[in-house]
């Protein structure tokens, strides 16, 4: 493995090929916030809270620290005014969905994000995809997946698989940055509906039907 020299927040860092900016920063004790990142899972780059500024041929560029590979001579800034402003807005947007998430609230404090800035859409899900990816990549069960796209994107359990696999597993619950609320809520909804009906309406996802009972979390 060849060594790669780069600079993060003014510190000279020696990294090895294949490392991301996030890995390199961690190695010298610089912390970059993440929400969708997980050591055991393939890199995803969805939440963008790890956004940092890099300089490429003199031009500043915003990239996701959790996936951007280290390059020789790269100059990285993890806390510029711009980066902080962006993280603040992203947090405010996510808090509209999951206002009570401890993880989000802690980050909000750090970046001065206002929990109530945007109108609430309490779906709890911030689309980090940890449950979906963990179930597919580690458990290889594919009991939960994404449905739809754009602002209608949701997670949804496949009732037939969930009925068999989920009650004894639930390993995705503690991964959820919104305190497992989303996974539990949606799973319960899926299992309350007979499989035939679960797919009769629209996207087939039961999370937005509003009829799911309040189940205990995790």
């Amino acid at each position: 493995m060849s060594e790669i020299n780069l600079q993060i927040d003014g510190k000279e860092v020696v990294a090895t090929e294949g490392m991301t900016i996030l890995d390199a920063a961690k190695s010298v004790g610089i912390s970059i916030p993440t929400l969708c990142h997980h050591e055991k899972l393939e890199p995803y780059g969805g939440c963008r809270i790890c956004t940092v500024e890099v300089e490429v041929r003199g031009w500043p560029k915003l990239v996701a620290g959790c996936i951007y590979p280290v390059e020789k001579g790269l100059v990285v800034r993890t806390r510029t005014e711009k980066v902080d402003k962006i993280r603040k807005v992203l947090l405010e947007e996510m808090l509209a969905h999951a206002p009570d998430s401890e993880e989000l609230k802690a980050l909000a404090q750090e970046y001065g994000a206002d929990r109530d800035r945007f109108e609430k859409h309490p779906s709890f899900c911030i689309h980090c995809g940890l449950c979906v990816r963990y179930c597919a990549e580690i458990k290889k069960k594919n009991a939960v997946g994404f449905v739809d796209r754009g602002s209608n994107r949701e997670i949804s359990f496949i009732p037939e698989i969930a009925a068999k696999e989920c009650w004894d597993c639930k390993e995705c619950f503690p991964l959820c940055p919104t305190s497992a609320l989303q996974a539990a809520y949606v799973l319960a909804g899926a299992l309350m509906t007979p499989p035939e009906e679960a797919h009769s309406g629209g996207c087939g996802c039961s999370c937005s039907c509003g009829s799911a009972p309040e189940k205990q979390a995790g």
Binding site: V132, V144, G145, V147, S156, I158, I161, C203, C205
Partner: peptide, 19 residues
């Protein structure tokens, strides 16, 4: 192919309908 992927595709692309 896992059902979760088919479900994603069937709802992601506008040409498909589940009803």
């Amino acid at each position: 192919v896992p059902m979760s992927r088919i479900q994603h595709i069937a709802t992601f692309y506008k040409a498909f309908s589940l009803v």
